[in-house]
Write a protein that binds this DNA or RNA. Structure first.
Length: 281
DNA sequence: CGGAGTGTTAGTCG
DNA sequence: CCGACTAACACTCC
């Protein structure tokens, strides 16, 4: 579930709570989800947080703690002092009941407790002990949309190589980092490109449009704190509101905001894909 | 009740 | 190398 805007929103929220604070204890309730020896990071302080694609990176005094939330992972921080602010969306499951049956890793800091919850258990936490290891971990990922190397020339050349659909291409993390199912569909709507089109069949004008739409969609989503559907909450427990401004995602059968045509939902290589058959050619 | 569907991605197989 | 498919898991929806 969490794509770039959700992970980035969580990162920003957690940075405020965690930077400068020390890990007192790590409890691993589902060993499969934690890679490395949890005792290694006890006593270390959080220096800074960053993000690469959908991976959250917490830099500690000596090591790095990485988290991937995959489909249903959550990170919830419960501060020691003061009420947990739920952002106007009270939800018992994310407050008083922690840890609950889907809390698999619990990290105690000097100022509160971080819970890693994951219903489907696809996510993970991982300790890396050097910058080299970290670079190896993210080596296969394509550029972030904010990087200078993410240029129109790169974008066009990569699309030209691919005979798969444009939808599948956008989901390929080795091509561009951070796009998932929601923002693939939303970017394609913005660019008026049908998700079934082959990547290498897009016209030059369409490629240019899509290239411009990706940052636009990501930035809008970041302003809204990401998308909340089912499990996702911001780091403070509140909901992201992007879905309120989404054009196609989860809008099957509803009128297109541009032309009024019903939004369709189809399967593209196993992933649900939402689009307006009238606007997206 | 049974089966399909779910925001991800690494791995396998042809 | 490329592309299609599957598994990892637990729950909701129809």
């Amino acid at each position: 579930m969490p794509e770039l805007p959700e992970v980035e929103t969580i990162r920003r929220g957690l940075a405020k709570s965690l930077v400068g604070h020390k890990i007192l204890a790590v409890k691993v309730l589902a060993p499969k989800l934690f890679i490395g020896n949890p005792q290694l990071i006890v006593g270390q302080e959080v220096l800074e947080t960053s993000r690469r694609a959908k991976i959250l990176i917490i830099k500690l005094s000596e090591y790095f703690l990485l988290t991937h939330l995959k489909m249903t992972g959550q990170l919830i921080f419960r501060p020691k002092h003061g009420e947990l602010v739920i952002g106007g969306h009270p939800d018992k499951v994310y407050d008083s009941q922690l840890p609950h049956k889907h809390s698999h890793i619990v990290i105690e800091f000097d100022n509160g407790t971080l819970f890693f919850n994951d219903l489907r258990k696809f996510g993970w936490m991982k300790i890396l002990t050097s910058l080299d290891e970290l670079q190896g971990e993210v080596a296969h990922l394509g550029p972030e949309y904010t990087w200078p190397e993410f240029t129109i020339d790169y974008f066009q050349a990569e699309l030209a190589k691919r005979r798969i659909t444009i939808k599948q291409t956008l989901l390929d993390q080795t091509f561009i980092a951070g796009i998932g199912n929601i923002y693939a569909d939303e970017s394609l709507f913005s660019a008026k490109v049908n998700p079934r089109r082959k990547a290498n069949d897009l016209t030059k004008a369409e490629v240019k449009k899509l290239f411009a739409c990706i940052p636009k969609v990501f930035n809008l989503a970041l302003q809204h704190g990401g998308t909340s559907s089912r499990d996702y909450r911001q780091a403070d427990g509140s909901m992201g509101t992007y879905l309120q401004v989404a054009n196609v995602y989860k809008r099957e059968g509803l009128p297109c905001q541009v032309c009024g045509n019903p939004i369709e939902r189809i399967k593209i290589s196993g992933r649900s894909s939402h689009f307006c058959p009238n606007c997206q050619k």
